[in-house]
Simulated assay, not measured.
Amino acid sequence: MPREQVGIRDVAAAAGVSVTTVSHVLNDTPHTRTSEHTKARVRAAAAELGYQPNRLARGLRTRASGMVGLLTEEIATTPHAGRIILGAQEEASRRGLTLAIINSRLNTDPEVETPEVQAFIDRQADGIIYATVYHDEVVTPDELHVVPAVLIGARDREGEIPSVMPDERGGAASVVDLLVRKGHRRIAFAATSVDVPATRGRLQGYRDGMLAAGLDPDEFVVEAVSEASGGYEATIGLLDHGRDPATRPTAVFCYNDRMAMGAYRAAAELGLQVPADVSIVGFDDQDPIAESLFPALTTVALPHYEMGAWAVRTVASLIEGRDEVGLLGAHPVLLDCPIVERASVAPPRA
């Protein structure tokens, strides 16, 4: 008798292959590079374990619905989610696809069914896009291996599902490069201690830029909460405390735009003008903060629209069998985070 609740991961473990390979074999996915020997081994393992694939999921091989499901993990209420959805929606429209959206949360236990993913599968979705809150490694549920799928904002821990993420490290390094080209040598970084990938990426990018310019990457780094209050406290500490104007920072690069808002207040209280006395740069290009500050804030934009569009293009390519999922899943695609130059940066006073 077959044991209960045999999953696709059980078959993969028994056959010594990836979950994606099992999905390809059992669903007869075209244009894969799986050998006949491996296919036989997978089918034998599935038969021995008594694996029963979802009947509707198997029907996806022959019944194209023209629908792509977009699951948003708590980002539907964030300031940037609209750009991801817009990018995905417009790209789907260009390809004649229908985009369906459900707000969800990725379960950290792959053995626990994710009902929102299953809902798309039951409705014959041709592919699924999962957008997550934090840019980190995740364990994907078994259901995401049944149909072509991609991740936005996170990488699959097993390296099997393609993903796209912002190149926050590169974006931060480009800020330092901009400030150095403007003539700044004492560049501070108002960081945060929240342990998320954005924190690590932006700090490392700052350090990369400082080292590339031959500058000390540790002299002017201060940690604070990633809100306006933290930006205020960090900037007060960097620019005040009896610092000689000849040795204090001439530019403050903030972890995000909310901290930059607090940095503006600190500069004003210290009698300093932005950007005449101190240049300030943010990160995120958050609406309406960046454009509403006076002077308008120079900041780094996250490629939300581009990530949404990339995800639809990629999942469409996988649906059509034009790309090999294993090759795409090995490394996340990093999209550029461009600088949006406004009026908060100027050369330092001589």
Results as ranks from 00 to 15, higher is better:
232 Y>D: 13
269 E>H: 03
349 R>Q: 14
295 P>W: 02
46 A>R: 03
126 D>Q: 07
317 S>T: 12
72 T>W: 04
290 A>Q: 04
336 D>P: 04
15 A>P: 06
158 E>D: 09
347 P>A: 05
305 Y>N: 07
219 E>S: 12
180 V>N: 08
90 E>P: 07
5 Q>N: 15
298 T>L: 08
5 Q>W: 09
213 A>N: 07
268 A>K: 05
95 R>S: 11
277 D>N: 10
155 R>S: 12
82 G>Y: 04
343 A>Q: 11
303 P>F: 03
263 A>F: 08
58 R>L: 15
46 A>N: 05
187 I>Y: 00
32 T>L: 01
266 A>L: 03
68 V>H: 04
349 R>F: 02
160 E>Q: 15
38 T>L: 05
40 A>N: 10
333 V>I: 06
41 R>D: 05
328 L>K: 07
249 P>I: 03
307 M>K: 14
76 A>I: 13
254 C>F: 01
238 L>R: 06
154 A>R: 04
144 L>D: 11
308 G>W: 06
90 E>V: 12
333 V>F: 00
300 V>W: 00
333 V>L: 08
216 D>R: 10
196 V>R: 02
182 K>Y: 07
206 Y>L: 07
216 D>A: 09
109 D>T: 13
171 G>F: 00
127 G>I: 12
299 T>K: 01
86 L>K: 13
177 D>M: 03
190 A>N: 01
96 G>S: 10
251 A>R: 11
320 E>S: 15
106 L>C: 11
166 P>I: 05
50 G>R: 04
